[in-house]
Structures are given as C-alpha cells and as structure tokens.
Design a protein around this nucleic acid. Structure first.
Length: 458
RNA sequence: GGUGGAGUGGCUGAGCGGCCCAAAGCAGCAGCCUGCAAAGCUGUAAAACCACGGGUUCAAAUCCCGUCUCCACCUCCA
C-alpha cells in the first residue's frame, strides 16, 4: 500500500506521489526565534521528522527545508525588553531550539535558511509581484509594500474563505488599499535599530513574515515542490498569504499541505501569547527526552494532544516496557534483518498513524516476551528484530547508549555479585541491604532466572 | 458573522460502513516468577450501551439530519 496523506488544501486524504520519482521536497515553517520553545514547537518539528524518516525508510531521498524567522516584530520587541542586541538575542533563542531538537532526536533539515540571509530573494519576488500587478508600495509613500488581495481572485483558496466574510483590522493603516492586504515589506520605524532594516527599492524596510517562506521555498526547492508543512495555527493568515504570493507570481508552489494539530493543556491551545506553555525545563523535571518524544508521538498528528500531569510518566512506563524487552531479548539472541510488520507499514502509510504503529510495537513486544518465557528463540529473534527496526524508524530509543561512569559500573557490579553471594548463603537481610544501597544509587535490579541485570535512573 | 476540527473505558488514545460485543499504553485486578519484593512477565479474566435524539442500511463508533458541549483560525503564535 502506498503512503496516503491528508492534504489540508483539498481537505481529503490522497495518495502521495512525489513529483520526481524517488525524491521528495518538503518545506516546513520553523520557529520565530522570539522566545524559548515549548511543547507545541517540538511537536511540530517532530511530526515532520517522522514523516521524513518514514519517506526515507521507504527509499525516498528527502530534501527538507525548515526556516528560521530571525527578523520579526516580536524578536525586536523581546530583544529590546531584554535590553539586548536583537541579532544576538535571536541567535541565542535559536540555540535553545536547536538544543531541544537535537535532544529530541529530530534530525537536522537539509537546509535551515534564515530570513535575514535571503533579503535579496524576497526583494526580487516582491519586485516581480509589483510588476505583475499583485503588489504595491504604500499609498502614503512609505517603504511599506503590500500584497493586493483584490488583485488575486483565488485569495482564500487554502482555507476556503471569502474576503467579504473575513473580519479585518478595524482601521485601515499604513497606507493599505484594502484592510486584508498584508505586508510584504515593512518600512523602518523610528526607534527600531538601524540594523533591523535593509535597503530596498522602496526605502529602508524589513521583510514581512509571509514573504520569507515564499522566497526561501523557491530558492531551495523551486517553483513547485511536494509538501508544505506547519502548525494548524499557521493556516491563516500565514500559509494563505504564502500561497497567494507564490501563485500570483506564477509559481505552482506546494502539492500537499500538511498541518499538524496543536498541543493543548486542559483543552486549551498551548501558545506563547496565552503564556500557558510548558517549557522544556519543566518537562525534564518529570521525564526524559525519550519520554517526551514518545508522548509527542502518541497521538496522530492531526489530533490535538492534551498535556496532563501523568503524560510523561505514562510515556516513560510504556517506553520502559519496550526497552526492557529489547534488553532481555538481546541477552538471548541477536537481531537480523526482517521486514517491518505489515500492520506497522499499513499504519504509517495511513496518513502517518504513528500511535497505530506504536501499538504494533507493543503487540510485538508482547509476542516476544511470551516467546522469551517459552524459550522459543526463533520467535524472540524475529520479534526483537522487528521491534528494533520499528523503534529505529520512529526514533524512539533516545540515549540507549548513554554513557555511565566505568567506576560506577564496576561498583554496581561488585555489589550485585556480593548480593548474589549473600542470596546463595541465604543471608537475605544482607542481600536486601545491598539492594537498598543500589536503590539509593538510582539503580533498579531485575532478577532473571540465571542472572541479575540492572538499569540506572529508572 | 465566516472557515475548519473534536466529543470513544478511571486516564491517554487508535479505529471512521461488516474482521469492532472497539487496537495499544498507563492505572487497577488476578496469576506466574521470587527467599521476599518496591522489579519483571502473562492475562483464556475484568472494565466503553463509542456526547444526546432521530434516520439510512441486511449491517453504523463509522454515513445523513437535528441538538448540546468543546477547540482552533479569521491579530503575533508550531
């Protein structure tokens, strides 16, 4: 079965066929680096990481572009509030995103363009739009440049809206012809840093938010590409405007629009503006990065994902079940190359049903555990191989190879040996005493029929 | 006012016309294992009348109509 994805422009599930066989081009809206990431940003990045992994697992060569919006009103405002140079500020915030992505096992995109490095591309695109009659310099003579929504009859096609039904800004400001027109370039304002504007044919200005994605997508992927992704909250106006700009310019733009649903907390959207975001620091107090990744994968990407106090501990418990099987099975056998289970493939191909795919992992773990009990090594080998490969595709086992201080390892193993001796001598109070000691070190013991294995920090 | 989406067991969360008297995980319970166990495993066991009311169909959680509730977007947000 082929991969089917929900295209939010046509609002239908369609078979995904890349325009160039074997190659997939994807553009994903990355963060505006105005403040540190919260769960929602991580979910978004993870969704496209999973899509990319699945495409690659199926032999596609994926070119993934994820931009960084490093010039924007909020960046300037937040930098000023922190009394910092905005460029440094944006760079630092970006680092916190990179760090979180890396820790979550999200692979680096093929390209990570920054808005400030593609001003020339944007100017060229805007000049072209003006020449085609779809954009204009502000009526008030400022360096503001707007997209002329009235000139583009298909405006609203992405979100199925009509201009006359839309609420607009109450006041028509900055020299727009129409309240729904949106900025392509914003004129330099008094009090803003000189470094935050560029010389353009219309005067000193900085780019509007939407134009960067159109320009950078075209720069890296061409006029037409396969997939455009981003958070559901970007559908309008951001993606609608991107589409309008690019299409009005004559570019075919994205063939599939993918929108990931949001992370909620108590049923409400987690967002910077609501200030209810759960930060990475807060999460790491209750769970590991692996638990965060597992949890973020545990709902289909088009469903909301509600954060509850037990979310991460539930995820950690489920993950421990999988890693426990892998660890035990590896003591008995190795893994070989086997095909992924059909159910797993079907789930992944069904609009990236990752929770369905995870269910298959658990089913396979159960089968493997049963086989371990029955000493059925052939089945154990098959299950282990399948689990390892599925886990690999989903990138679930973060930090499996985490390093432990060799001296500590030695101490732990000595204690385990002493405990085994005590047990052999039926000195159980001594054995329990040693076990307590290990518990204090954060070590959990697991007594197997013929040996004791251990893990650290739960 | 407009445009989308959602309501499934104690919790999380799949399924979207028959394989569903509803996957999977967590919690719980029972059993196994164990010197014991806070660890591990298993479940032929238990737990959901799939928001509510109508309808279509041989067959509905899944389709249609109505009602209620909730969420998102139309302003910066993944």
């Amino acid at each position: 079965m082929a991969l089917e994805l929900f295209d939010s422009k046509t609002q239908s599930v369609r078979e995904f066929v890349p325009k160039a066989p074997g190659k997939v081009s994807m553009y994903v809206c990355g963060p505006t680096v105005q403040s540190a990431p919260h769960l929602g940003h991580l979910r978004s990045a993870l969704v496209y990481d999973l899509l990319r992994r699945w495409l690659e697992a199926n032999g596609q060569r994926v070119t993934l572009v994820r931009n960084v919006t490093d010039i924007d009103d909020k960046v300037l405002v937040n930098a000023a509030a922190a009394n910092r140079d905005w460029i440094e500020f944006a760079g630092e915030v970006e680092k916190t995103f990179d760090e979180a992505y890396r820790s979550l096992g999200i692979a680096e995109p093929t390209h990570t363009p920054h808005a400030t490095q593609h001003i020339a591309d944007m100017i060229a695109l805007v000049e072209s739009l003006i020449a085609k009659g779809h954009a204009y310099q502000a009526e008030d003579g400022s360096a503001n440049v707007f997209f002329d929504t009235a000139s583009w009859s298909q405006y609203g096609e992405l979100t199925n809206q009509k201009l006359e039904n839309m609420e607009g800004e109450l006041e028509n400001t900055f020299g727009k012809r129409n309240v729904h027109d949106f900025a392509l370039f914003k004129a330099h304002k008094e009090g803003e840093p000189e470094s935050a504007s560029w010389d353009t044919p219309w005067g000193k200005a900085r780019p509007g938010w939407h134009i960067e994605c159109s320009a950078m997508a075209k720069h890296f992927l061409g006029e037409s590409f396969d997939i455009h992704g981003g958070g559901l909250d970007l559908r309008f106006p951001h993606h609608e405007n991107e589409l309008a700009q690019s299409r009005a310019n004559g570019d075919a733009f994205a063939k599939f629009w993918i929108h990931n649903a949001l992370v909620t907390i108590q049923g409400q959207k987690m967002s910077k503006s609501l200030g209810n975001g759960v930060s990475v620091e807060q999460l790491l107090e209750v769970g590991s990065w692996a638990a965060i990744r597992y949890w973020l994968s545990s709902s289909q990407y088009r469903s909301n994902l509600d954060y509850t106090p037990t979310s991460l501990s539930d995820a950690q418990a489920a993950l421990d079940r999988i890693s426990g099987f892998i660890k035990r099975a590896k003591l008995q056998t190795g893994s070989t190359n086997v095909p992924l289970p059909d159910n797993f493939v079907t789930a992944m191909n069904s609009d990236l049903n990752v929770p369905g795919a995870i269910a298959v992992i658990h089913e396979t773990v159960r089968a493997g555990n049963t086989a371990l009990d029955a000493n059925d090594i052939n089945t154990v080998t098959t299950c282990l191989s399948q689990v390892v490969q599925m886990v690999e595709v989903l990138g679930l086992m973060l930090g499996v190879a985490k390093e432990i201080d060799p001296a500590l390892t030695q101490k732990i193993e000595e204690l385990i040996t002493l405990r085994a001796e005590a047990k052999a001598n039926k000195d159980f109070s001594r054995a329990d005493q040693i076990r307590d000691e290990l518990t204090k070190l954060g070590v959990t013991l697991e007594d197997l029929p013929n040996q004791t294995i251990w893990s650290i920090n739960g």
